[in-house]
Simulated assay, not measured.
Amino acid sequence: MNLASTALPALAAVVALVFTWASVNQNGAQLRLSEQGQITDRFNAAIQNLGANSLDIRMGGIYALERIMRDSDRDQPSAISVLSAFVRTRAARFGASGKPPKSETAPKVLADVQAAVTVLSSRDPAHDRETRVDLRNTNLAQYVLPKASLAGSDLSGADLRGANLEEANLTDADLQLALVSGADMNRATLHHTNLYGADLSVAFLLQADLTGATLSLADLRGAKLAGAHVAGAELSGANIAETGLTKYDLARTRGTPAPVPQANSSSGT
């Protein structure tokens, strides 16, 4: 038997397999490029829709970005940045002067802003990379965000009065100088959250986890803290009047709270 006559067909088969593999890889690469191009087109269209005068078109842009985040992990950081900027623009707490208005009454909840913050707070944080949700100095009073995934987010200076943040994850978030009075944060996770100087008066923090949180100079007057975990929390200068915090609770915290005024026990006689 001629060895060449048997080797050539085998070699031809190997070459055919190599070309088939190369063709499949090339087709796969072209498909990925095509898909990425489609996502880029969808992304650009969504951004244009966010600037539309029509509420329906803006809502379409918001939900288009939500779908892009689900379809393309690599584009999630960009979508987060765009949606964050949209909320900061549409729901800015301060005017062009950079100063708060003389009267900060709670505004009407805007449907497109509610949709945008809902999308941001329900995303999969595993694909955020180094990007953070940036909602600083926004007016989100009365907005509804239960179980929001906002760990590491920037909410410094935000107005969250009366907002629903029940069971929200705000681990390592920045809420310094935020207005959180009357907000529902029952069972929220606030591990190492920065609440420096925040107004938490009459906020609902039942069973909230404030382990290691910074509450220096915070206003906690009348806050509902039953069952809350405060071990390691920094309370230097915080107003804890009418919070019900016990000596046992305070023994596990850091810093010295502001003196609590003693009720006048005089009978007046």
Rank of each mutant, 00 (worst) to 15 (best):
V202Y: 14
V18R: 09
G182W: 10
P107L: 12
A263D: 09
A92Y: 07
A251I: 03
R90V: 07
A10W: 12
R93L: 15
A258N: 07
V117G: 01
Q48I: 01
R74Y: 11
G61C: 08
A7W: 12
T131P: 00
L200Q: 04
P146I: 14
A218E: 04
V260D: 11
L235A: 06
T193A: 15
K108D: 00
G212S: 12
D174I: 06
S81R: 06
I39N: 01
A46D: 06
R32L: 15
H192M: 09
G212R: 10
G227S: 05
Q30H: 02
L205C: 09
R161A: 11
P146S: 01
L175C: 11
T131A: 14
A231E: 14
V117H: 09
S181C: 02
A10Y: 12
K224C: 01
L160F: 06
L200K: 02
R254C: 02
A168D: 04
P101Y: 08
T131C: 00
D219I: 02
L210F: 11
N27T: 06
Q76I: 02
I57L: 09
A228L: 11
G197A: 05
A263T: 15
R74F: 07
K108H: 06
N137T: 03
L33A: 10
I68C: 02
L245M: 12
K147G: 03
S236E: 15
D73F: 07
M69R: 09
S97H: 01
Q262G: 04
G268H: 14
L17G: 14
A241C: 14
A96E: 12
L140G: 11
T189Y: 12
H192A: 11
L120Y: 10
F43V: 03
R123P: 02
T89G: 01
A45D: 11
D112P: 01
P257N: 07
S153G: 10
N194S: 12
A263Q: 08
S149M: 14
N49M: 15
A79M: 06
D184P: 00
D73L: 03
A22C: 03
D184G: 01
L8Y: 11
A228G: 03
A213P: 11
A251S: 13
D73W: 09
G51H: 12
L31Y: 10
R42P: 00
A116W: 07
N264Y: 09
N27C: 06
D249W: 05
S81L: 10
Q30S: 04
Q26P: 00
S122E: 13
T171L: 04
T256Y: 07
D199M: 05
W21V: 14
N2E: 13
D124F: 07
H229T: 13
A158M: 03
A111C: 01
V82T: 14
Q48M: 05
L165G: 05
A198S: 15
A203M: 03
F86Q: 03
I47W: 00
T269F: 06
T20E: 06
L215P: 01
N186S: 09
D71L: 12
D249Q: 10
R74P: 00
N25V: 07
Q30F: 01
P107F: 11
V133Y: 06
L155H: 09
D199V: 05
R161C: 04
E242M: 02
V202Q: 13
E66H: 10
G268A: 12
A85E: 13
P261I: 08
L220H: 05
D41I: 15
R252D: 02
L150R: 13
E35T: 08
S201V: 04
A29S: 12
A218F: 06
